[in-house]
Simulated scan of single mutants.
Amino acid sequence: MPSPFPGMDPYIESPLLWSDFHNNLASEMQMRLNQYIQPRYFARLTPYVTYESVDIGQTYRVIPDVGISQPQPPPESSVTATATITPPLVESLVPLEMPLRLHRVEIRATETQQLVTVIEILSPVNKRPSHQAYLAYQRKRRDILHSEVHLIEIDLLRGGERPPLERPVPMAPYYVIVSRQEQRPRVNVWPIQLADRLPVLPIPLLAPDPDVPMPLGEAVANVYERAAYARQIDYTQPPPPPALSEADAAWIKTLLGHLASDEPRA
Rank of each mutant, 00 (worst) to 15 (best):
R61I: 15
V94F: 06
I119C: 02
L194S: 09
L255E: 09
V54T: 04
P75T: 06
R180L: 13
R158T: 08
P164E: 08
H131F: 01
E153F: 02
R231N: 15
S123N: 07
R61D: 01
E153K: 01
P168K: 05
Q193S: 11
M171P: 00
A219Q: 08
Q193E: 11
E263W: 04
F21E: 06
K253V: 03
S179E: 08
M29A: 12
Q70T: 11
D248H: 07
Q237R: 07
E52N: 08
P191L: 12
L259P: 00
V90Q: 13
A249M: 03
V49S: 01
Q72R: 11
T86Y: 00
P10F: 09
R108P: 03
I177W: 01
S14Q: 05
L256I: 13
R128L: 15
I121M: 13
L102C: 07
I119D: 02
Y224K: 04
Q138Y: 00
P88L: 10
S3A: 03
I68Y: 15
E106T: 12
L115Q: 01
I192V: 13
T84D: 08
S147G: 03
T59S: 00
R162E: 03
R104K: 15
S245I: 07
P39M: 07
M98V: 12
R231Y: 12
T117M: 07
R265W: 14
E52R: 12
P64H: 10
V90P: 00
S179R: 06
K253Q: 15
R231A: 15
V220L: 11
Q113S: 13
T50Y: 00
L45N: 01
R158A: 10
E263D: 07
V116C: 02
